[in-house]
Amino acid sequence: MSSPPFASELDLQLCHDCGQVCQSGAIECPRCDALLHHRKPDSLARTWALLITALILYVPANLLPVMYTDMFGSGSENTILSGVIEFWRDGSWDIAVIIFIASVVVPCAKFLVLGVLLVTVQRRSRWAMRERARLYRFIETIGYWSMLDVLVVALVAALVQFRALSTIEPRLGILFFGLVVVLTMIAAMTFDPRLIWDAEINDDRHA
């Protein structure tokens, strides 16, 4: 079974916005006017920058409290992890697992996978290309579930507002955490999975 030709070998390129097959070298898509590019511009540099920024912000996101709870005069602050542990102790292990996956496993998986993809692409590695392509699609699909904790805090803070008795307020940690989610989402969008396959083409025309 012969493998299908690459678009660049046929002097074609894809419009990402409407799926039109365009001639190489065209600047705008003739059908939808979107800007065309052979590969996403500066894909590697931009993805690295976004990924490292996200990684740095992930530290305060975990260390700073995300929520302040005041119940009958006794206040306490919760970080993401202490919230998970609290759920676990209360016996809601299922909820603890869901929040742990959304807030810890998913972001860490994104850091790891994007890091591995960036390094292997830079080394023009031909190792496990199909699997790496699948990993990329996987983190692209699951990435936005990390917003879960931000939405939970927003709703709980909007609900529990009984001035004297009890209040729940968002804290600075949720800002950092939200930024991590947004940055890793943009990082995944900036990475161009076609770079994985450029290792198959011998000449050096990657972005």
Binding site: F6, A7, L14, V21, Q23, A133, R137, R194
Partner: peptide, 16 residues
């Protein structure tokens, strides 16, 4: 231009 072709957005392969 060539409506009978499609390109894979993840690896740039061209198909009918």
């Amino acid at each position: 231009m060539q409506p009978q072709l499609i390109i894979c957005e993840h690896c740039d392969s061209v198909y009918q």
